[in-house]
């Protein structure tokens, strides 16, 4: 599903170049549940940003489902992103001034889906995540776990093939964290590819493969055959 070849990310400043990612080679298959681990500053979030096409300034080759992302312009990347990728963030990143239902509707509206169809999809996801009763509430009226539940629902509402979860349980206590991880596992079992970043070994164990990053390099788990 994903093939990264010699992907590099560098920040240039007056003091010289700062390498954030170095020669990343990575293969991820359809249906994988990947965990990326590593110390702070290792490049985990940067790698997620590149895979999620939120960051366009990098070098190397990136193939997503036979699409050569590195050759696409920004508009095509946005299209690809909307079609295949859902995001879950540590800080939930729900929009404070939108209700639960409106937050869920937002990614659909960016996909130019007709209103009646969107309403049906939002109703389905509210039902599936058992948050129908919360649909008219604003994020600040929800607990942290409930907010992350909505955030996951928002990530999957567009039926993405790939979910990128950047420390999805980082702001939750353990029982809420387990609920979210169980949910991600269930989505994975239903066929969604998941890449998560975590520092927690227990949550890492939910995945079928762990990739270790350090100082921008993959030090373990790049392919099923091992690190490059």
């Amino acid at each position: 599903m994903i093939k990264l070849r010699d992907v590099e990310k560098v920040y240039e400043s007056g003091a010289g170049k700062t390498w954030v990612l170095r020669r990343i080679n990575l293969d991820i298959a359809d249906g994988d549940f990947i965990t990326i681990m590593g110390p702070s500053g290792a490049g985990k979030s940067t790698l997620m940003g590149i895979v999620g096409m939120l960051d366009g300034a990098w070098k190397g080759e990136y193939h997503l489902l036979e699409n050569a992302v590195h050759k696409l312009d920004n508009r095509r990347r946005v299209e690809l992103h909307k079609k295949y990728i859902g995001f879950v963030f540590q800080q939930y990143h729900l929009l404070d001034n939108l209700t639960v239902a409106e937050n869920l509707d937002l990614p659909l509206s960016y996909r130019d889906i007709k209103k009646a169809e969107r309403e049906g999809m939002v109703a389905d996801i509210l039902d599936r995540f058992q948050i129908v009763g919360k649909k008219a509430l604003f994020p600040n009226q929800l607990s942290g776990g409930q907010q992350q539940l909505v955030a996951v629902a928002r990530a999957v509402i567009g039926k993405p093939k790939l979910i990128l979860a950047d420390e999805p349980t980082g702001s939750l206590h353990s029982s809420q964290g387990k609920m979210i991880m169980d949910l991600l596992k269930k989505l994975n079992q239903d066929g969604t590819t998941i890449i998560q970043v975590t520092h927690n070994d227990a949550w890492a164990a939910y995945g079928n493969r762990i990739i270790q990053l350090a100082d921008g390099w993959i030090v373990d788990g790049a392919t099923k055959a091992g690190a490059v």
């Binding site: 999620g52 939120l54 508009r75 946005v78 992103h81 909307k82 995001f87 963030f89 990143h93 729900l94 929009l95 404070d96 937002l106 990614p107 960016y110 996909r111 928002r154 567009g158």
Partner: peptide, 16 residues
């Protein structure tokens, strides 16, 4: 900026 960043992450184009 955070709110706009979220919107972009959710697929909003620059036009939107």
């Amino acid at each position: 900026q955070k709110e706009i960043g979220i919107r972009v992450a959710l697929g909003a184009s620059r036009f939107r």
